[in-house]
Design a protein around this nucleic acid. Sequence first.
DNA 1: TTAAATCCCTAGTGCAACGATCGGGATAAT
DNA 2: ATTATCCCGATCGTTGCACTAGGGATTTAA
Lengths: 149, 149
Amino acid sequence: MNLSQKCQYGLRAMFELAKRNSQGPLSIPQIAEAQAIPPRFLEQILTQLKHAGYVESRRGVQGGYLLASTPYEVTVGEIIRLFEGPLSPVKCLAGQGGGDCPLLGDCAFIELWERAQAAVEEVYDSTSLQDLIDRERAAAARRTVNFCI
Amino acid sequence: MNLSQKCQYGLRAMFELAKRNSQGPLSIPQIAEAQAIPPRFLEQILTQLKHAGYVESRRGVQGGYLLASTPYEVTVGEIIRLFEGPLSPVKCLAGQGGGDCPLLGDCAFIELWERAQAAVEEVYDSTSLQDLIDRERAAAARRTVNFCI
DNA sequence: TTAAATCCCTAGTGCAACGATCGGGATAAT
DNA sequence: ATTATCCCGATCGTTGCACTAGGGATTTAA
């Protein structure tokens, strides 16, 4: 069920990069401050995102990180899988070897786990970074209207 | 995402009690063997299930544990919540106090987490122990047919 | 050419949760 | 009285998580 802090930081970093996609590279301190992430920890997270091909980096003065693709192309599901592995509630689904389940074969729960996994995958895989940006804007607009009323 | 081993053991124990509901109390060794659960660990788990009101116990010779209600009345969702707490992917949804999220209020992700939580809740809360028993029987029947063919 | 800003890599650390075990006590049936 | 069972509290080893630290490599700018 639970997503790790690292995964959430990773998503927030990607979100920040997506929001300010046109401003050139964002440095670690910039992202860290905007999204309240410990900077040295963020460094590790960005390295991981880079190795997986989701961001690019520029070194030296004025350097930083950039999205490797557009916010429309990246889904939340991909990022979560990068940090958490398969989105399955139990190990025996995750590992293709079946893990070490002693009830292999006639487990009454497998179908249940598969359905739960499919349900969250539907949500996460159908949401792109751009969707998050759009929703944030919509929420901000709603807040403004409420404030006026 | 992941359910703890303890939670899975708890579900399997409940499932075993449900399957053999009419046979009188099941002892810890009986359940442990049938479901491949370390006996001393199972003891703790059954205690937890008892305190929460899901099972009853009989002491002494011929004692053991019984389901406190019918397999139709208990959902998988309840049991999972007993061991794992709220079915939310992030802390800030789980704690009614909002946890310690520094972005409280204008977080672009909240709606996403709510949707993911609702998706798994739909699956887990709509499955009773009896459903699991029925599905296991159906799966066994399917295997028999395949074997005959 | 030097200096500053930035990313890059490899450890290492403290803590809490998890999975499991242990010892010994209470209770009930025979 | 004996035995089978549950009951309770403590403990223990491992692992993963969240985070910190130190020192190096590049690139731009002055």
